[in-house]
Amino acid sequence: MQTRNPLLDEFAKLTTGAMGLAQAAGEEAKTAFRSGADRMAADLDLVRRDEFDALKAEIAALRAEVAALKSPVKTAKKPATGTSTGRVPPQDAAG
């Protein structure tokens, strides 16, 4: 045997409405926060992670190229005239 109490029915409707309103307000706050964070990131000129990694790899390749260009070139140099070891008499064991 069920009885309908109009006071309890109204209270249930009120709490259901309040919960729906609170949920909607939470979603609205989350959306506003994300929008503000996106706007702030755009204002600060922040880069995305994939762009940062690509630039980092490019810089590493350029540094390796610069290091290779700065290293001394290994070529056979001709000795200056008069420094040939063929004219110097060999040293004996006494020195």
Rank of each mutant, 00 (worst) to 15 (best):
D43L: 13
L46Q: 11
V88K: 11
K56R: 13
A12E: 11
V88E: 05
K13R: 14
D9P: 05
R39M: 06
D53H: 09
Q23H: 07
K13I: 01
I59C: 00
T81D: 15
R4H: 15
A22D: 09
K78H: 05
S35K: 14
E27S: 09
P6M: 12
V47M: 14
L69T: 03
G82V: 02
A32Y: 06
M1V: 05
L44Q: 10
E58D: 14
K30N: 06
V66L: 11
L62S: 02
A67Q: 05
A25K: 09
L55M: 08
P89R: 05
A24F: 07
A80G: 01
V47A: 10
E10H: 07
R48G: 13
G86I: 02
D38Q: 13
D50Y: 11
A80I: 05
K30S: 04
S71M: 06
A29Y: 00
R49Q: 14
L55K: 12
T81G: 08
L69K: 10
L8N: 02
A64N: 04
N5A: 11
P89Y: 01
E10T: 08
A18Q: 09
A29T: 05
G95D: 06
R39H: 02
K13F: 00
T3W: 05
D53F: 10
D43M: 08
L46R: 14
E51Y: 07
T16Y: 11
R49L: 13
T3I: 12
T75D: 05
T83I: 03
L62P: 00
D53R: 09
T15K: 10
L44P: 00
G36R: 14
T16C: 11
K70M: 08
S84P: 03
R87E: 04
K13E: 04
K30L: 12
A18N: 10
K74H: 03
S35M: 12
V73S: 03
T83Q: 10
D53A: 12
G20M: 05
R39Y: 04
G26N: 09
K78V: 14
L8E: 10
P90Q: 01
F11N: 04
A18S: 06
A42L: 09
G95I: 05
Q91R: 07
A42C: 02
N5R: 06
G95R: 03
M1A: 07
T31Y: 11
A32P: 05
S84F: 06
T83S: 10
L8A: 12
E27C: 07
D53V: 13
I59N: 11
E58Y: 08
S71A: 15
K30R: 14
K56M: 11
P72D: 03
L21R: 14
L8Q: 08
E65G: 00
P6V: 08
P6S: 09
Q91S: 10
A80Y: 08
A93N: 04
G86C: 01
T16D: 12
E58K: 15
T3E: 13
